[in-house]
Design a protein around this nucleic acid. Sequence first.
RNA 1: GCUCAGAUGGUGGAACUGGUAGACACGCAGGACUUAAAAUCCUGUGCCCUCAACAGGCGUGCGGGUUCGAUUCCCGCUCUGAGUACCA
Length: 929
Amino acid sequence: MDYQFKDIEQKWQQFWADKKTFKAENNSAKPKYYVLDMFPYPSGAGLHVGHPLGYIASDIFARYKRLKGFNVLHPMGYDSFGLPAEQYAIQTGQHPSITTEANIATYRRQLDQIGFSFDWSREVRTSSPDYYKWTQWIFMQLFNSWYNKSAEKAESIETLVQHFEKSGSKGINAVADEDILTFTADEWKAFPDAVKQEELLKYRLTYLRESTVNWCPALGTVLANDEVKDGFSERGGYPVEQKKMMQWSMRITAYAERLLQGLDTIDWPEPLREMQRNWIGKSVGASVKFPLATGEDRGEYIEVFTTRVDTIFGVTFLVIAPEHELVNALTTPEQQAEIDAYIAQTKKKSELDRMADTKTVSGAFTGSYVLNPLNGERIPIWIADYVLAGYGTGAVMAVPSGDQRDYLFAKHFNLPIVPIIDIQNIETEADPTKEGKYINSDFINGLSYKEATAAVVAKLESIGAGKAKVNFRMRDAIFGRQRYWGEPVPVYFKDGLPNLISEAELPLLLPEIDKYLPTETGEPPLGRATGWKHTEGEYELSTMPGWAGSSWYWYRYMDAHNEAEFASKQAIEYWKDVDLYIGGSEHATGHLLYSRFWNKFLKDIGKVVEEEPFKKLINQGMIQGRSNFVYRLIDDEGRGTNTFVSHGLIKDYKTSPLHVDVNIVENDTLNLEKFKKFRPEFETAEFILEGGKYICGVEVEKMSKSKFNVVNPDDIIERYGADTLRMYEMFLGPLEQSKPWNTNGIEGVFKFLRKFWRLFHDADWNFNVSNEAPTKAELKSLHKIIRKVEEDIERFSFNTSVSSFMIAVNELTDLKCNKRAILQDLTIVLSAYAPHICEELWALLGNPDGTLSYAAYPVFNPDYLVEDEFAYPISVNGKTKLNLNISLSLEPKQIEEFVLANADVQKYLEGKTPKKVIVVKGRIVNLVV
RNA sequence: GCUCAGAUGGUGGAACUGGUAGACACGCAGGACUUAAAAUCCUGUGCCCUCAACAGGCGUGCGGGUUCGAUUCCCGCUCUGAGUACCA
């Protein structure tokens, strides 16, 4: 029979599902290997051809690892809480769980069609109560923990209480809010319970605090920093403003240093690690207190953070953020009007304006002064919006000779600029050099950068005016959304204080509500739930953010149906961590950072075993759209006609481009019949053709419906089958590279599979395989591909494997090879890429049905590749002139003699004797003339 | 601005530690089969010069360098894409 991909693919997909072929066991004598994909949010649009790229790569890897004798965990699930389903619910009144359910069904059908080897028995859905029960449980553990900096780990809040009871707040080295109290053990014991709880909340890893949040009025919710791009929401693109609100937060900053250090221990792409480093934003420097110069000494000061404490003698003014809490107190009556005007002006500017306008220098003088703590010099205090309230202390010591922003500010307002390093050149701009010796700098004059920094820090510490300090850019993550479709927070409020519900009450189910909007009084949608109340108080009304459920899901796959724990100890100790994680780089600072944070926390409380969850990570590139255009002829009156001009001829006509559905275009040639049916108005369309064809124009754009460039995998599978789709997606180019989807060329892969099928069949399509012993040439082809695929998969170079398969099949076709000894092994090697056709041929070869998935990958034997001759390229001055067959047993000296004796070589030498002869055995001969 | 990644035929791309640049595939051209088309198969295909062959010249974004030899290493630049943005 001819290659009937449809029958074959349906048959094997059914077989795998019925026999649970890919079900993984939680214990095995085999070594474990965990291959994970970033699970999708099931959107209403279904999968387009770009989505499965990473899944195909990971599936090939998982199948390959099974052949290599590993016990492979390769699961899939759905990140099914999220905004789009809720927006849809607001519009239609339909419960998000219904649309989510329907979308998941579509995703599942599409995924199944591609022939993935997922263990579906472990499927998870973040919106399912038996899953989010454990998300809530982890939240409770975080609430019950504090971060002990001395131990460098999270500990139970009980240990903190015990310490307070024994020694008060003394000796506690914790990551906590800034306004923590100082007290003795007796004082602690005397505190009313409410005060104790309030104080403990300042230490908990998930805590409630009034904080400035990114409020998105259009979405009616707050957003995390990574959900905001340029002042607009990432989803939907609505404006975002700053607002103060009581909010749940996660103390991720406690883990800043470990999150940073851990990056060096994992095998991730460098750009991704770099993004996380920037996001964490560690800077090493010092904090310095500048005492206020106002009259009598009342111990008041302004604290700044600086990375260049060595430049402290170059400070000629201080700048604080307009939002700084001391602005009012510092403003003198004479300056009041000016300061007020400036603050009003900054407030008017939107976040976006402030970012766009980085050139204009602006600011205002408060009228007050501080003293330089090291030499007592009077330093004016200014406010300016180039200093951000949210970073460091919201105040900077300005060193115009070394910092360009300070330099511009000083020039603009005529403030002094003092050079502090002998080789500094500050004629036209600041010079931040660390080379040279210090001048104008009191006791560090003549020192080098390193010596000066150490000396200044030591001096500041000795007089209590400062200390070495590490600052992080990363902020604690806001952990609440005023939305419906998310995990309820397992907390109720009593006397204004948050209390956890008991574990026995988990899961706290999402209640039914009448519509998915905030209440009339502005409460989140959960405020609409009637009768939804804890026996002890009111439930928290916000829900968890989208990243909650995805921050631990890889553990649930290990033991997906456990009702007593999020995963059993035994399962976690067996699978440990994810060996290979494939997904998009858009999750660099969101999901991948939060997951690492929760993982470290779970390790601290002894629930998991590895410090890092994802050992190796690969980012698949984005698949962009490739739009096709037709060109409508414009008549003399400037109106569009119904005549269309082929792309190659548009220079000669006046035309306007129009998107055309890429699905009616093949190799950029328009299918005229389908085009006429594309829209009713084109029914009577006429064409100006080139070479009898209508050639379309091309542009690379985002894949979207409005651009008619969405390619659906269903259509490709219908036409060519899943095996062709899988191989073609890999053939497109390196996995990590972004590229436009282009269906041109898919024929080549399809033809390859037919050619492979034909190796097993005679001219009349009868299955025909011989048991003859293979020849040397056949064995060579086979073993080349055995090695090549092994090497390629290990370095994630899937595209080159596909080419090599083509070469192998071309060679075997030329050799007319139909020998079982060759084809059976070739089938195993190809099966990771094209599993359906290989299962079918494996069965036809007489093997028991379905055993291919667990067959042994053939062992490479280098003996078959040994050559006794090599066609040496002979080059003269580095340019190849000819090839000579020379025995590989010859040594360089003999090769040289052989080559020089050759008549053709002599011709190129034109009678001259080469100055030098380079012979690299088995590679090249180069004659230097 | 800063950080990272990249630039190879008409197109997607290959060349793994410096050693025959353009594998494999698409497209295109020619041919076979066919009444014809589709499908299939065969041949050719980096560019320039040449009727053609032979031969030759030029070629991995640009300019230099190291080397017997550079797509690969080093220095400088241009362009493209991504991330980030007054971070003190």
